[in-house]
């Protein structure tokens, strides 16, 4: 019975993964979107009592709760970026961090209930990365990708975690994987890389100026190549 329920979760997760890959970039906040419960669920009053939830169903509930908190945190961050003064910005950013912390707790519970839930591991990584805990974020992404190696949201966001740790060679490798398999994600990572270069120019990390410049040149070259190479889906949209 447990196996059946779990396979349902996996099937739903796979379906969501496919749907996810088709979403435009600005809708792909962290990789995950709310999942329907695999089965069962709470009953309304007057109906026969629902059977107790399986651990997989509970995991989906925790995961969906985490996504809501994550989205709230992202909205607060967006608001913070648009704040007119530093005080408001700091206040909103602090609130966002609190929401990310709450999201982390929910995603952790989801992974505890269902250790095979790769989306939950990936979104745990996302929330951890947003709080600046890059090593823990990497662990979560690694776990997600060990369960689902082709889950490109985790490939992309793990690369952003690599950038947080100045591991540019690892980030470049991830870009190459995405360029071959998921151009939308690859483009998104390239934008993140450009942003990261600007951040590091303003606040240098462990990279030398020469190494940063070399990486910046690489990003420029890849941007040029990507611009020259329409993806398969772009070929479909093209005016011939």
């Amino acid at each position: 019975m447990k196996k059946v329920a779990h396979s349902k979760v996996v099937r739903i997760a796979l379906l969501i993964g496919v749907v996810f890959a088709l979403l435009p970039g600005d809708l792909r906040a962290s990789g995950g979107s709310p999942m329907p419960r695999p089965s069962g669920g709470s009953s309304s009053s007057g109906m026969p009592a629902a059977p107790p939830k399986t651990p997989e169903e509970q995991a989906v509930d925790y995961y969906n709760a985490g996504l809501k908190l994550r989205d709230k945190a992202l909205a607060l961050q967006k608001e913070a970026a648009q704040a007119s003064n530093e005080k408001d910005r700091a206040k909103l950013e602090k609130k966002a961090q609190q929401e990310f912390d709450k999201a982390i707790a929910q995603f952790r519970k989801a992974t505890e209930k269902n250790a095979m839930f790769h989306e939950a591991h990936s979104d745990l990584g996302f929330a951890l990365r947003k709080t600046g805990d890059y090593p823990a974020a990497l662990q979560a992404y690694d776990r997600a990708l060990s369960l689902a190696p082709a889950y490109t949201p985790a490939v992309e966001y793990r690369a952003e975690a690599y950038l947080g740790l100045d591991r540019v060679e690892d980030a470049k490798q991830a870009y190459m994987v995405l360029f071959a398999g998921d151009r939308g994600r690859a483009d998104e990572l390239l934008r993140a890389m450009k942003g990261w270069v600007e951040e590091r120019r303003a606040a240098p990390g462990s990279l030398t100026p020469d190494a940063l410049q070399e990486f910046s040149s690489w990003v420029t070259q890849r941007e040029e190549l990507a611009g020259q190479t329409p993806s398969v889906s772009e070929l479909q949209q093209r005016q011939w």
Partner: peptide, 19 residues
């Protein structure tokens, strides 16, 4: 001469027909 084939319109699995 465009895309992965460096030619004109392409057809592949799942693609809509291109004139």
């Amino acid at each position: 001469h465009v895309g992965f084939t460096f030619s004109g319109p392409v057809a592949f699995e799942g693609a809509r027909p291109i004139a």
